[in-house]
Each structure stands twice: as C-alpha cells, then as structure tokens.
C-alpha cells in the first residue's frame, strides 16, 4: 500500500494487524513517535493524519492507506526547529521527554481545531464561532496527553506562547 509520511510517498507491504505506530517505529525506524500505553490512554503516540491529530496506537496502518501522516520528525524546517519545539525548550515543557513528541503533534492539531472554531467541554458559548485560547481551553483540549513527569505547566506555557500570539495577530 501507498502512504505518505512527512511528505514522502512510501510503498509498504504489511500484515493488516500492524498498527500505524508499529509501522512508524518498527518498519520505518521513525522512533520519534512514542509507545506509552498502546491502548489509547496516554497520547504519547499522537501523530497528524492530513493535519488531524490521532492516536497511532489505536490505528491499523491499513486504514491510513493513501493518507498523509506527519510525525515529530517532519516538523523542523531544514534544521530549524518548529516554533513550538523551541517554545517547549524555552518553557521547560518536558523533563524525560517521553511524552513530548505526542504533546507537540497534539498541540499542532489542537491549534487547527481552535482555529476552525471547534468547541470544547469548557467552551461556555457553544454558538460562538471564535474561541479564545485561554488556559482553561488549552488544558481541557490537551487532556488526552499525559505527562508522567508533571511538566504540564511548562507545556501549557509553551503552547500559550505560540498560539495565543497567533490568535492575537
């Protein structure tokens, strides 16, 4: 089957049992995406499928035939870190770093959701078409990404720096 990973089309032959996460890590040697729980509970395996954040551990790779997958390895531009990657460093958004690739991919997908007006469980006015990226909104929307080291405050600070600035523009 044909699948695009970080902009590059690839032909892969797979047992249908292979998860998208195992395709990335075991077959393509892209170890940036992490396996935490392998059952949907931690968010470490978050990648973007055509820009939407998903959990690669609960995805069979065959379901994503023909789709375009982005992982943390694809974010830097010619050796220059993605602004959100730099913000994670600046704000101590990690300790051990295990959850970080998932946090960053999730935040990028999350920002696109806020941008197109998707409400969240803490959005007071469901009819509103623009939703300010307040701390409460960001925390609720990032709740699918756990950090065992407790770096959540730095993580939200980093995301706030990048996406509140964008929203203000």
């Amino acid at each position: 089957m044909l699948i695009t990973i970080n902009g590059q089309g690839m032909e892969v032959a797979l047992d249908p049992r292979t998860s998208l996460l195992d395709l990335l890590r075991e077959h393509l040697e892209l170890h940036g995406t992490k396996k935490g729980c392998d059952q949907g509970a931690c968010g470490a395996c978050t990648v973007l499928a055509d820009g939407e954040r998903i959990l690669s551990c609960l995805a069979l790779a065959v379901q994503y035939e023909g789709r375009s997958i982005s992982t943390v390895e694809g974010l830097a531009d010619d050796g220059r870190l993605h602004p959100l990657q730099q913000a994670f460093i600046d704000h101590d958004g990690f300790q051990c770093g295990y959850c970080t690739p998932g946090q960053i991919c999730s935040a990028i997908g999350m920002a696109a959701e806020i941008g197109r007006g998707v409400p969240s469980a803490v959005t007071a006015d469901l009819a509103a078409t623009t939703i300010p990226p307040t701390r409460d909104e960001l925390r609720e929307r990032m709740s699918g990404n756990l950090c065992r080291c407790g770096a959540h405050n730095g993580i939200i600070d980093a995301i706030t720096e990048i996406y509140s600035a964008e929203a203000a523009e």
């Binding site: 939407e52 998903i54 999730s106 409400p119 469901l126 699918g144």
Partner: peptide, 23 residues
C-alpha cells in the same frame, strides 16, 4: 448540532480526548 441540540455537542465533547474524537 451546536445551536439546535447543544446536549449532543456537550455530551460528545465531554468524552474521551481530542485525538480519539477525531478518529
């Protein structure tokens, strides 16, 4: 859904996580 059936939007948004709801 948001305007006419807010209970449904709120119920869905209170479940699972952003990633899981996308799938």
């Amino acid at each position: 859904v948001r305007e006419r059936y807010p209970v449904l939007a709120r119920a869905i948004l209170s479940g699972a996580s952003g990633q899981i709801r996308n799938m």
